[in-house]
Simulated assay, not measured.
Amino acid sequence: MFLSLAVILIPVLLIVWFFTRTPDEPNIQQVDWTSMTASARSHARYPVLAPAVVPEDWRPTKARYANRGDRWVGNTISAGNRWELGFLTSQNVYLAVNQSDEPRRAFVAAVTRSATEDGKVTVGRYTWVKMVSPDGRTRALTTTIGSSTAVIVADAEYPVLTDFAQMLTTS
């Protein structure tokens, strides 16, 4: 009876252990955001936002640019010249700046998960519209820079977004 129980119990315990263990640190693929920023700035028809420097413990996870008509995420076609730059902070908060010269309303709705206006804040030389998603989880700041709409988005409170906005420059 003990042998029969061991034959069944040992594989079950191994399966439970394998599927319930937590990895030490997720494997996050980092990208070279500085060269992609330079490339976007040379191709875009508007001033491209990006930080001059970021804290050493931030991990750049996205940096991509597409011209109008190019393939974008999920095999969609970009409706405008589009820029996206995202970082994972040391507190594992994802912050991204999205920018495009496509129609403002559709772009903001897509990037902010159909967020609604939640006030305004001035950061540096720009006045940003604060936005919050219907479920209250995602917050965003939007503004117009040149012929583009810029959106900073995060699953964090507004002070985190305004701190990130202060880091952004167009050169």
Rank of each mutant, 00 (worst) to 15 (best):
F2P: 03
L5H: 02
L5C: 02
L9T: 15
P11G: 08
L13I: 09
L13W: 06
L14C: 14
L14Y: 07
I15A: 14
W17C: 07
F19A: 13
T20G: 03
T20L: 13
R21G: 12
R21Y: 06
P26W: 08
P26T: 07
Q29G: 06
V31E: 06
T34R: 11
T37S: 05
A38I: 01
S39E: 12
Y46T: 10
P47S: 08
V48T: 05
L49R: 09
A50C: 03
A50I: 04
A50L: 08
V54R: 04
D57F: 03
P60G: 02
K62Q: 10
R64I: 03
A66C: 00
R68I: 07
D70A: 02
N75E: 11
N75G: 08
T76K: 08
I77M: 08
I77W: 00
S78M: 01
A79T: 07
N81M: 04
R82A: 05
R82N: 08
R82E: 10
F87W: 10
F87Y: 09
F87E: 12
T89L: 01
T89A: 04
S90Q: 13
N92M: 09
N92T: 14
Y94F: 13
V97Q: 07
V97Y: 01
N98Q: 09
Q99Y: 04
S100F: 01
S100W: 01
D101F: 00
D101S: 03
R104S: 13
R104W: 05
R105V: 11
R105Y: 02
A106N: 12
A106S: 11
V108I: 15
V108R: 00
A109P: 02
T116N: 06
D118T: 01
G119Q: 05
V121E: 15
V123N: 07
Y126K: 13
T127M: 14
W128T: 15
V129F: 00
V129M: 11
K130T: 12
M131W: 04
P134K: 04
D135I: 09
T138W: 03
A140N: 05
T142N: 01
T143W: 01
T144N: 07
I145F: 00
S148M: 01
S148T: 03
V153K: 13
A154D: 14
A156F: 02
A156L: 09
Y158R: 07
P159E: 09
L161W: 06
T162L: 09
T162C: 12
Q166L: 10
Q166A: 10
M167E: 11
M167V: 02
L168I: 10
L168Y: 00
T169I: 11
T170Y: 08
T170I: 12
